[in-house]
């Protein structure tokens, strides 16, 4: 099965290779052939959520062209995939683009969603020793509607000592530009999240969205705390 990877701009620009590399390796281990369209950029969410929809359409058109050849688009971010699925709304009044936008939306999957629902695999054969908890991410659960796939996969990772995060459904306060535009509010939200993470006594917080992880991890670092954040792709790619 040929899979086109949409890395997302955060994994592309703000982080070292780990998340993308783990995504590629996990998918290859499951028999997928990876295609990485080099012209890919960003899903457009920063502009979209800020109200700049004309600008978002330019970005969306570029992404549609870039991934038009793909059979499946897989991305290690629930939030960015939710944005790809938003494209048809952007082109509601544009008969030329709406069909193309729909096609893109229909073939886009978040990584864990793709593994569980398309590849129909729940045990990727990973092994990882550690005391962990998991942050569910609002866009993954509520916008994309994917509430189960990450947990199904994590359950089968050998060695994980898992504690559920209290108030796990609560937002971490990232929200893209919200994190800076509404800084004082975002700060309260992320602090509450960090407090809940500490209540679990976990050493590692796993998440499936780099936006949330950058926010929570950045706050944990600033407070000099020792909890580490890791993307779920890195956990699924861990082997003994």
């Amino acid at each position: 099965m040929k899979v086109s990877l949409f890395l997302t701009c955060l994994a592309d620009a703000a982080y070292p290779a780990d998340v993308g590399r783990s995504t590629v390796e996990v998918l290859e281990r499951l028999g997928c052939e990876i295609d990485f369209p080099k012209n890919q950029t960003c899903c457009g969410q920063p502009a979209y959520n800020s109200g700049f929809h004309r600008e978002t359409r330019d970005v969306a058109k570029h992404m549609i062209r870039t991934f038009e050849h793909a059979d499946y688009i897989v991305s290690p971010s629930g939030s960015c995939v939710a944005m790809l699925k938003e494209y048809p709304h952007l082109f509601e009044d544009d008969p030329e683009w709406i069909g193309r936008a729909k096609k893109l939306a229909d073939k886009s999957y978040e990584l864990t969603q793709f593994i569980v629902n398309v590849l129909e695999v729940e045990d990727v054969g990973a092994e990882f020793e550690g005391k962990v908890t998991y942050h569910t991410s609002c866009h993954m659960t509520r916008l994309l509607g994917e509430r189960e796939a990450p947990m199904k996969l994590l359950k089968n990772v050998k060695g994980l000592n898992f504690t559920e995060l209290p108030n796990k459904q609560q937002c971490c306060g990232f929200g893209g530009t919200f994190s800076v535009k509404m800084l004082p509010i975002s700060e309260q939200m992320v602090d509450e999240k960090v407090q809940h993470i500490e209540e679990t006594n976990a050493d590692i917080l796993i998440g499936a969205d780099l936006g949330c992880l950058m926010n929570i991890g950045g706050r944990i670092d600033r407070q000099g705390k020792s909890v580490k954040v890791m993307h779920i792709a890195e956990i699924l790619n861990s082997q003994k």
Binding site: D12, A14, P16, A17, F36, L183, V190
Partner: peptide, 23 residues
């Protein structure tokens, strides 16, 4: 925005090579 971000949080430490380089 980066100043605002770093008012309360650190930025990820970007060590090691980028994905594109690795790929």
């Amino acid at each position: 925005p980066i100043k605002l971000w770093t008012d309360i949080r650190n930025l990820p430490k970007s060590t090691g090579q980028s994905f594109r380089k690795w790929y």
